[in-house]
Design a protein around this nucleic acid. Structure first.
Ligand SMILES: [Zn+2]
Ligand SMILES: [Zn+2]
Ligand SMILES: [Zn+2]
Ligand SMILES: [Zn+2]
Lengths: 161, 161
DNA sequence: TTTGTGATGTTATCTCATAACACTCCGCCT
DNA sequence: AGGCGGAGTGTTATGAGATAACATCACAAA
């Protein structure tokens, strides 16, 4: 993450064990749904989980090979597209980055609180059913997907300079 | 706009007279604020107003010269950045496009209902004070700007195939 | 007129994302 | 076993979106 300030007070990226566990859970669920958790998909999800914050696609591409070899862009973009479709990852449009889903659900709408200072990002339940949904109803629109992202400062960065 | 279907039931782009009027109003307001409505800014705003729907940056670049000559990218991106800063235009992150503000206000948060079928886009008052604001408060985030975009089908496209 | 600031012109480059096509893997039918 | 057929990958190339850097210009204040 490009830091506007010096703080690095994330919850801390999950440890290897936690990543492993989340990965297993995702694989189990996908298999049950008749989908395949292939090597590329698993690797990209592992990178997202390990990062614990939004990651740029080309950073994933650079880190893809365990040996330091980068991947070809389509390899990663295909995996991202799949993970997003399955609700295991989300694209943050306002910063063109990707993040592992932290709400565990299947395909679902999500909203994000993004700290422009330290990069910390929180996924919160999407308020589609609320204000936006009412506005859409009033206008006669049938909503199919949403992009809801709020930028600002996280609690820690509000205090520090 | 890339049409998934054949419908073209926008409110219709505003006529030349309306564009001229909106342009004048914007110029007057900017002058009063000590800002300059330069040729490039005026031209880009005119193109956005005339389109009446989101336009890609490189379409603006292509249409920039009245004589058909394209502009250089920085010319248009600088104008867009200015217009956005002044609340006269908005960037729609989910489709990487730009649209003239239809709520007349100064710098302000906005939300959009976007029809994936015909491209019609409505700007609605941003629900920052609502659900999202509450989520941010609960998490301790101080919001500075938002990206709120809902994709789906407009009333007309819900009926037609 | 001088001088400083904001705006623009111009070139080059960077980042983000996808098209297209050949090939492989794997389950399934015969 | 043999032969589909569809999903997934590898690879090359290119399209689309955005900005860095620096020279120059316009304009109003001093
Ligand atoms: Zn999620
Ligand atoms: Zn922070
Ligand atoms: Zn607006
Ligand atoms: Zn429509």
């Amino acid at each position: 993450m490009a830091d506007a300030c010096q703080h690095h007070h994330h919850d801390g990226p999950p440890g290897a064990a936690e990543v492993e566990r989340a990965l297993d859970a995702a694989g189990t669920r996908l298999t049950a749904e008749g989908e395949r958790m292939t090597a590329a998909r698993s690797r990209v999800l592992a990178l997202l989980l390990a990062a614990g914050e939004p990651v740029k696609a080309y950073d994933l591409i650079a880190r893809f090979g365990e040996d330091g070899q980068p991947a070809k862009p389509p390899t990663v973009y295909r995996a991202l597209e799949f993970l997003e479709r399955k609700g295991l990852a989300h694209r943050i449009a306002s910063i063109s980055a990707y993040v592992a889903c932290t709400s565990g659900g299947r395909d679902h709408a999500a909203a994000f609180l993004i700290c422009d200072c330290c990069g910390t990002t929180r996924e919160v339940s999407s308020p589609v059913a609320g204000d936006l949904g009412r506005a859409a109803d009033a206008a006669g629109y049938a909503i199919e997907r949403t992009t809801i992202e709020a930028h600002g400062r996280c609690p820690a960065c509000r205090i520090a300079v």
